[in-house]
Design a protein around this nucleic acid. Sequence first.
DNA 1: TAAAAACCGAGTGAATTACTTGGTTATATA
DNA 2: TATATAACCAAGTAATTCACTCGGTTTTTA
Lengths: 166, 166
Amino acid sequence: MRLTTKGRYAVTAMLDLALHASDGPISLADISERQGISLSYLEQLFAKLRRNDLVRSVRGPGGGYQLNREQHAIDVAEVIDAVNESVDATGCGHSGGGHTGGCQGGNTCLTHHLWCDLSSQIHEFLSQISLADLMARQDVQAVAKRQDREQQTLIDTSLIEAKVSA
Amino acid sequence: MRLTTKGRYAVTAMLDLALHASDGPISLADISERQGISLSYLEQLFAKLRRNDLVRSVRGPGGGYQLNREQHAIDVAEVIDAVNESVDATGCGHSGGGHTGGCQGGNTCLTHHLWCDLSSQIHEFLSQISLADLMARQDVQAVAKRQDREQQTLIDTSLIEAKVSA
DNA sequence: TAAAAACCGAGTGAATTACTTGGTTATATA
DNA sequence: TATATAACCAAGTAATTCACTCGGTTTTTA
């Protein structure tokens, strides 16, 4: 279980999808705008999310991505695991444990089991939080509301600019 | 609380110090041999550990490093924090939380509080584990015993080689 | 037919990791 | 007092990852 900004981006994007689920398919351009993540990076992340059956895509105009399961049936841990899929399995790290490398020559290192414990601890924590849980949080609601307002402002502004240039 | 191999190396090295505390100061060369970590890298890590008062050094022949506190008074979290000391404090991440960056323009991102929760969860877990706790673990005892045997074999071998070349 | 969107691959600058090289200083011991 | 040991220090470096850019193609709707 690697914990990097990559996984955070993925969870943020998935949560954005969940929050706007009622609007039909959501384009990555929308998510990019709202969450401040580059479009191409989102494309890479969603390719992995799609491969892991966490989202489904609709192509063409009006298309975008949708959650492939109910919001309470997707947990944070699997979102992070999906984008971190990197099959190395080198060293002593029996895949899944998260502790790959660090043990020399097939021998477990001193702290091997500690990291395994920690890894499962983190996994346990994150697998008990679903997208539905996140959506119910007050802080998430507040941020989401602000982001929608900001995006609307952007749209209005560009409409005005379009009229001015016409 | 960043979790990388860097922190793991540091904890492994500190645990090695704790396990051989009765032998007086331990040289980094010994730790390097036993734990398979490069000497210079250890030097860098121990410079930070020393700066954080986790170890003290003895220079000259027979010198090395010793724990600067009792084994039960040093926990895993502070060892990791010591080697990860990188004062950025950019973005929304109020230092200590661990979630730096990811929030655009001073605004907290959707999952800001989630990562703060997780970070404190991990910190909580690791701060409750002392070097003494680690030493008491059976798996650690077993690995330590094997490592000492291996090192002794190396010493014996080089002694024989020295005699042969003489 | 044009535009919107997913899909795809290659490349890139910045940061980090783990390490190497090549020193200097301090100190115990022969 | 000479020598070896070991901490201490600074610079550089290959490999990896991250987050992103660029330049496409394919599918689908209007």
